[in-house]
């Protein structure tokens, strides 16, 4: 039963993630957190982090990771198969049509409208990771100021600066923020 659920969930991710890796994130969180409850927001944030750090498409990383956790190697294989099956069918068909007709106006027109929607959904998925990171300890508006994680806000701002202004590689930026958090915790532990 779980294998069928995994297959169907990742089939949807594969069939609907237009526009590359980041576009798959909202679809995966929808399936894994909301629909099937395979993971918490916390685990999902780790998954996105791990996927960013390792080579390969995020959708395949996520399918393998979630498949493994839900039902071991068979789960990982089924989920990965689900995520690539729509591509295999749709892209082969389009490649065939391309060599027959060499015209893609309609597809490119469709993509033009999909892109803005995809951008918004990537933003929304980013916010679902950002909000618990910054405000995880905030229980009401009254303690917003004292319970905000200012260190996370600072790391985020520094990371943005390194990415935009100094054109750092994203993986290097992530390693820096990870190392900085570890260093900060070690120093705080040493001082107290």
């Amino acid at each position: 039963m779980e294998l069928i659920e995994l297959f169907l969930a990742f089939l949807q991710v594969g069939a609907l993630s237009f526009g590359g890796g980041y576009a798959a994130i909202p679809l995966i969180s929808r399936q894994a957190i909301d629909t099937y409850g395979w993971m918490t927001v916390e685990d999902f944030s780790d998954l996105v982090t791990i996927a960013e750090m390792t080579p390969g498409p995020i959708a395949i990383n996520a399918a393998t990771f979630i498949g493994m956790r839900v039902s071991g190697i068979p789960g990982a294989l089924i989920a990965t198969l689900g995520v690539i099956l729509p591509s295999c069918i749709i892209v082969s068909l389009l490649a065939y049509l391309y060599y027959r007709f060499r015209k893609l106006t309609l597809i490119q027109g469709m993509l033009k409208s999909l892109r803005p929607a995809v951008v918004s959904m990537i933003l929304a998925a980013g916010l679902t990771i950002l909000i618990p990171t910054f405000f995880g300890n905030v229980t009401s508006l009254g303690n917003l100021l004292e319970n905000t994680n200012y260190r996370a806000v600072l790391l985020f701002s520094a990371a943005l600066l390194l990415l935009r202004k100094f054109r750092f590689n994203p993986i290097v930026v992530m390693l820096i923020t990870g190392g900085a958090e570890l260093a900060a915790r070690l120093i705080l532990k040493y001082l107290t």
């Binding site: 944030s45 996105v48 982090t49 960013e52 750090m53 980013g126 990771i129 950002l130 990171t133 996370a152 790391l155 985020f156 990371a159 943005l160 990415l163 994203p170 930026v173 992530m174 390693l175 820096i176 923020t177 990870g178 190392g179 900085a180 958090e181 570890l182 900060a184």
Partner: peptide, 9 residues
């Protein structure tokens, strides 16, 4: 810590 980095990316 890397979560802040991912959000920035």
């Amino acid at each position: 810590g890397m979560r802040s980095g991912v959000c920035a990316v």
